[in-house]
Amino acid sequence: MSSAGVLILFAIVGVVICARCRVSTGAVVFSLVALVLFVATPAGRGLPDAIASFVSTVDDSATPALTHGAEADG
């Protein structure tokens, strides 16, 4: 897995090149490849859990505010 860093670097360079040439589809594809490669490394293994925890916290915080008006009307 030592070459994952080089692959991520090439993917980021691909994103920059595609963005400068205004090829949005290529930039998105290279971004997704870089993200998948990053999550496959030991440093990025916790990323999906961190995102899930963040979204859960936001959902728990927003639910009372969003349902408060519905309970008062009903």
Rank of each mutant, 00 (worst) to 15 (best):
A43R: 03
G14C: 10
S31W: 10
F38N: 00
V15D: 04
V29D: 13
V28W: 08
G69L: 05
V29S: 04
A27C: 00
L37R: 01
L32W: 05
G46V: 08
T41V: 10
A34I: 01
S31G: 05
S56D: 05
A70R: 09
T57Y: 11
R20M: 12
H68V: 12
R20W: 11
T25E: 15
V23P: 08
G69Q: 00
L32G: 05
F38L: 08
F54C: 00
P42C: 06
A34F: 04
V16M: 07
V33S: 07
R22S: 12
G69S: 00
H68A: 11
G14R: 14
S61H: 10
A40Y: 03
T57P: 01
T57N: 09
A34T: 04
S61V: 09
V58H: 05
S61W: 12
L66W: 02
G44A: 01
G14D: 05
V36L: 09
F30E: 11
I17W: 05
A70K: 00
A34R: 02
A52P: 03
L35K: 02
L47V: 10
F38T: 08
F38P: 01
S53L: 01
L35I: 13
P48M: 06
F30Q: 13
A70H: 04
R22Q: 13
R20C: 12
V58A: 12
V39H: 09
L37D: 02
V28N: 03
S53Y: 13
F30N: 14
I17A: 08
G69D: 02
A52D: 06
V33I: 11
S53R: 13
V28Y: 08
A52K: 07
P48Y: 02
A27Q: 00
A40H: 11
G44Y: 02
A40C: 03
A50N: 07
A19P: 14
A50E: 09
G26L: 08
V36E: 08
V13Q: 14
S24C: 13
A62P: 01
P48F: 01
A34W: 06
P48A: 04
V15S: 03
G44N: 06
A43E: 06
E71Y: 15
V13K: 03
C18R: 14
A27E: 01
I51V: 08
L35Y: 08
P64C: 04
P42H: 15
G14T: 09
S31F: 04
T25F: 04
F38K: 02
A40R: 11
L37S: 00
L35C: 12
G14M: 15
D60K: 07
A65I: 01
T25Q: 09
F54Y: 01
S31C: 05
A65M: 04
V58E: 02
V36R: 12
V15R: 15
F38G: 00
H68I: 06
L47K: 04
F38I: 08
D49C: 02
P64K: 04
T41L: 01
T57A: 09
V33E: 02
F30W: 11
V13C: 13
D59M: 10
G44V: 06
G44R: 04
L66R: 11
L66P: 02
H68N: 09
V36T: 14
A62V: 15
P42K: 07
V16T: 12
R20A: 11
S53A: 10
I51N: 05
V28P: 11
A52L: 08
A65P: 02
V29R: 02
